[in-house]
Design a protein around this nucleic acid. Structure first.
Lengths: 339, 339
DNA sequence: TGGATCTGCGCAAACGTTTCCTCAAGATGG
DNA sequence: CCATCTTGAGGAAACGTTTGCGCAGATCCA
């Protein structure tokens, strides 16, 4: 069973291959009747253009490569979904290249992408201060960096973590909380610093003093769990009435420990997380108010931008920050007021 | 900056395009010296064969499509990683097609895959009793179903859930537990039934009676949480000394609640989960002993099988079950004995 | 020494498209 | 009535490979 080619369509419709091609691409001049006859013939025969042949002459493959070193997929997956959705409508497919952080493997993928003549490259990571484990050769292929280190002069997309942290803190302040602590991830992640700045900025705006320093540590439940003891263990110097956590896992550990030691959430302490990782956020008791980074939409925006770059539209270099939003559940106390 | 083609290589090495092609593909007859000269010329010029041109004549694209409706990526991601790893060594790249369970989108992706002339198709889902939301047309493209409903006469891969459940239960029994309950997901998932059967089979093998019926419900922490009360609330009829949970989320909810109501894990009750979703399994207190489905290896196996099918190797239809292994942490009590 | 075989390499066709150029026939204009 | 333009359509080249076939020269064997 061999594929049906444009030649078959042309023969069936009694026209030349040239005319068939023009009819199917809606270009060139021809009698309306002819065009329709050809289109119907194509439909009847179940014709699908061979995109390799098309790519060969048009020098476009209608594919892009997604290079990721985010093994776990927490960030890449929603980004990929948004990207893919924006692309598929225009007939562009996405190659998934999981580099696993291994230079060897990444290089292999990179070469494969070159051979496949991808129209664009998206580099996606899990932290904005680390890029690919290999230097990207200057290939002239349009490239976008998502949630990864973006070299000078390139275009990048990241969630607006400063704005997200600010919104979360303002949300807490707006609910009447005055003593807002911040527990977050490792100091050497760029994102932690940015989020901490957003926290400070919001406090400053509201005329509030930060409750101690930002408590850096791991991105883990265990860290939140320990910091609960740290913050609420010694009653001598008073306690915060809210904790803004750098991610949902920390928030989860925090809430679990608070519950164990008899601190009520959200009555005594409001807790807000970061990431809106639903599998966590919805399972905490009570469900977690948290910041959604809008990764799906970020991926979509990146996709649209990439399509523009491929079409040769001039695209200014620089980092685009896409908005983050507070997702209100119960751990901040906003809902229980309504009760 | 235009791409360097085989013509450039040929000119540089003072041979015909034909000879250059043969040298680079290590086919045909020619003087060793000539071959080496051509290969060096290619390296020097940084030649990468254009896989579209190659595909056009060889009728192979060196790509496969991964169609998934697993929005969350819990299953697809490790499978994709294994698949991709097995493929990339052979120069085959993977198209990621996230269908999101939407027939429209899935169809769009499917058409794109046909136009791109993929050499193979992998359909990957999150439950073995549901397939794609659209009928797959008979295209003659080699197809493998992973963790999804596999039509009669096709080849499929699934984790051996029966064996996994059996191993988990035997592990508990081997640690001296005699009253082993089972809390699991929705009754209408095929996987729940299979895992429950494995549980019963192992009990039977050990001459133990099941502790009540399998407790079906949701795949959620909340379900595990509630079933803890159900199992350990009424002391009148005694309590199990072990619970085998259908996934890690259920196990997490179970352990959380047990801790709250003063039942000690693993001293009073051993708990084993399923999935080895590390982000959960490592964060429970104590860390969760659970069943790993070996999805990475499953993906790799599927990839190798796919390569065989593409090469025309006869491949018997049917379901392949790949082994699951018990990952021992602390919630089963195996470790605490050592202490 | 002369046919047969082997060696090393090139010509040209093919893969399925798109697109530049050409061309006939009819319409238009002065 | 002739020159010009418009319309509708086809021929052929091109994209970058692979590959069947052919061919000249060298080697072999009797």
């Amino acid at each position: 069973m061999t594929r049906v080619t444009i030649r078959d369509v042309a023969r069936y419709a009694n026209v030349s291959v040239t005319t068939a091609s023009r009819a199917l691409n809606d270009t060139g001049r021809m009698a309306r009747e002819t065009r329709e006859r050809i289109i119907q013939a194509a439909a009847k025969l179940g014709y699908r253009p061979n995109s390799m042949a098309r790519g060969l002459v048009s020098q476009r493959s209608f594919t892009i490569g997604l290079l990721t070193n985010d093994t776990y997929g927490r960030f890449t997956l929603p980004v990929a979904a948004g990207l893919s959705a924006a692309m598929v409508d225009r007939g562009v497919s996405v190659f998934l290249c999981a580099g696993e952080g291994d230079p060897q493997r990444t290089l292999l993928n990179l070469e494969a992408m070159q051979e496949k003549c991808v129209d664009g490259l998206v580099v996606s990571g899990k932290r904005i201060d680390r890029g690919l484990p290999v230097e990207l050769p200057r290939t002239g292929i349009p490239t976008i960096y998502i949630n990864a280190a973006c070299p000078e002069g390139e275009v990048g997309f990241v969630p607006d973590d400063s704005g997200g942290a600010e919104a979360a803190t303002l949300h807490l302040a707006g609910l009447g909380r005055r003593r807002i602590a911040h527990v977050t991830g490792p100091r050497n992640f760029a994102a932690t610093g940015i989020r901490a700045d957003g926290w400070l900025k919001a406090l400053d705006r509201m005329g509030l003093a930060p409750w101690g320093e930002a408590l850096f540590g791991e991105w883990s439940e265990a860290h939140g769990y320990r910091m609960a003891d740290h913050l609420f263990g010694q009653t001598s110097r008073g306690m915060p009435d809210a904790v803004f956590c750098g991610n949902d896992q920390i928030a989860r550990g925090m809430i679990d420990r608070l519950t164990e030691i008899g601190v009520r959430v959200p009555k005594d302490v409001a807790v807000v997380g970061y990431d809106n990782w639903e599998i966590f956020a919805k399972a905490t008791r009570p469900p977690l108010t948290t910041v959604d980074m809008g990764l799906l939409e970020l991926g979509r925006q990146a996709g649209l931008t990439m399509l523009g770059m491929i079409d040769g539209k001039p695209t200014p270099a620089g980092i685009r920050r896409t908005p983050c939003t507070v997702v209100v559940r119960e751990s901040c106390g906003a809902r229980s007021e309504a009760d």
